[in-house]
């Protein structure tokens, strides 16, 4: 049985975006500081009277978590409590799409991370980057690695969710070694 999903409420504060809690409960599994949060991403769990609800990032929102505002395990929160403060995500803007692939506000297709972790550009130090600006990618091509708990898994380009079968890399949106959330945009693409 899948958990009930609750979307956080977004409120702008200067160039920052605040994500507020839509209900009362114990906030747990918080996404850590420095991770990217984008529309549709999982943003922790809210336990209310023993019932777990999955928190999701609302549409039109993307940014990097700025500081840890709460304990990661069972922090008591109420209606409107600010759970995350996001600073703008360099190189990527809010997603206008709900699907995993999606595109940015300018309509450019974005390839997103299949899982949370640390994104690496090359298979080993000293080797060329697996995906570089101007390079061509197609289905099955390795474009980087995601490190989760000391294990490294190749990220293969999959043209799902409306992404082109072949594409040129316009921008690499995540720095080498930066932490990413699940579904965080990794590459901006141009169809070929």
């Amino acid at each position: 049985m899948s958990a009930e999903i609750l979307h956080l409420r977004a409120r702008a504060e200067g160039e920052h975006m605040l994500l507020e809690c839509p209900s009362v409960g114990l906030f747990t599994n918080a996404v850590r500081a420095g991770m990217a949060l984008v529309a549709g991403a999982r943003a922790g769990t809210l336990l209310t009277l023993g019932r777990a609800c999955e928190l999701r990032v609302p549409d039109e929102v993307a940014g990097l978590v700025d500081g840890d505002l709460h304990e990661r395990v069972q922090a008591p929160v109420g209606y409107g409590t600010v759970l995350y403060r996001l600073r703008p995500l360099a190189g990527a803007t809010a997603s206008a799409s709900k699907n995993a692939a999606g595109s940015d506000s300018s309509g450019a297709p974005l390839f997103r991370s299949p899982s949370a972790g640390r994104f690496w550009h090359r298979a080993a130090p000293g080797e060329p980057a697996l995906a570089s600006v101007g390079g061509m990618i197609e289905a099955g091509r390795a474009i980087g690695l995601v490190e989760v708990m000391k294990t490294f898994t190749l990220v293969h380009y999959q043209p799902t969710g409306g992404l082109p079968a072949r594409a040129r890399v316009v921008r690499v949106l995540v720095a080498d070694g930066a932490e990413v959330a699940e579904k965080a945009p990794l590459l901006e693409l141009a169809p070929e």
Binding site: A3, R42, V148, M149
Partner: peptide, 18 residues
Amino acid sequence: RQGVIDDPEHKGKKKPCG
């Protein structure tokens, strides 16, 4: 198995294999 699996003890969390 290698890589990451869903954590059976904590819904929504992941665990490394190996």
